[in-house]
Nucleic acid binder design. Structure first.
Lengths: 145, 145
DNA sequence: ACAATTAAAGAGTTTTATATCTTTAATAAA
DNA sequence: TTTATTAAAGATATAAAACTCTTTAATTGT
């Protein structure tokens, strides 16, 4: 596995996909999303239920229902998605998994690893979903599988 | 989970522990190691078998046997341990898990994430186990659980 | 040769992550 | 008010990671 769990990868891809597809308040269904991001539909449904419950995305049932994102949703940092799924360990945890690890009692990787974690935090915490989406909309980036 | 799998955390801790305890060519047993790094003994045994097979550490059976590290072992980069257990995804993979992701077809995180991955690679690939161990030996860092 | 010690190997079990299938509830439109 | 459509929820199923237990093989010292 990479840095994030597979579930978290699906979640991020889905969020970008929804943002990309619902700029105007329209909705996009689970089928379209799961095909668009190449993930198992039912599994993704669970993930989106979770994100929806947490207010990271929005959903509506019934005909013309589906998932969508408001300006409020778009203004959130991507770290909200990661934290919702994978938790905070990736932003805070010791590389070696030591509980005692700290500046006062650093593990062999502590200082250098902290710098890397901080960069990751800055990237995910400091950038809104909206701004990632702008690059997607103007074709500078892509979600091609 | 953090950036590395639990198995990989154990592996790194064990490698540091062995290096720390066998500076002179002596050996240290699985019991001591697993207690020293707070990991399940039998599970760690499997991990160390694997590292031993790959030549990352050494072992000897019988009385006064155990695990140890030679100068050759110590000169290797820590990335060898990580790669042996977790593979290369963490150094090379797309943050969103996309196969097509590349400079020519970048995902929304591509450029910034690549910089972070490169820093991680530089840290693990560019630093020998020995040099991490030196900090441990002179008390600048610790493996306290 | 024998007994003791140690890692290696093999064969599980348990837990967590990932994935699937079915039923229910909400909503919209006819 | 009925039907169609959609997400939510519930219940399993499968696969992978983490962990345990038992047996075997190698080595040492007596």
């Amino acid at each position: 596995m990479g840095v994030f769990s597979r579930t978290c990868e699906y979640a991020m891809r889905a969020v970008f996909f929804i943002a990309h597809r619902t700029p105007d308040g329209s909705r996009v269904g689970i089928k379209d999303i799961s095909e668009g991001i190449d993930s198992p539909a039912h599994f993704l449904a669970k993930i989106l239920q979770d994100l929806s419950r947490r207010g990271i995305i929005n959903s509506a049932k019934g005909p013309n229902g589906g998932f969508y994102m408001t300006e409020e949703n778009l203004s959130r940092p991507l770290s909200d998605v990661v934290e919702a799924i994978d938790g905070v360990q990736i932003f805070k945890g010791c590389a070696l998994g030591l509980k005692q690890c700290s500046v006062k009692n650093p593990c062999p990787l502590h200082h250098e690893f902290k710098a890397i974690r901080n960069d990751l935090t800055k990237l995910l915490n400091g950038t809104s979903i909206k701004s990632f989406n702008e690059d997607l909309l103007n074709g500078m980036t892509s979600l091609k599988k």
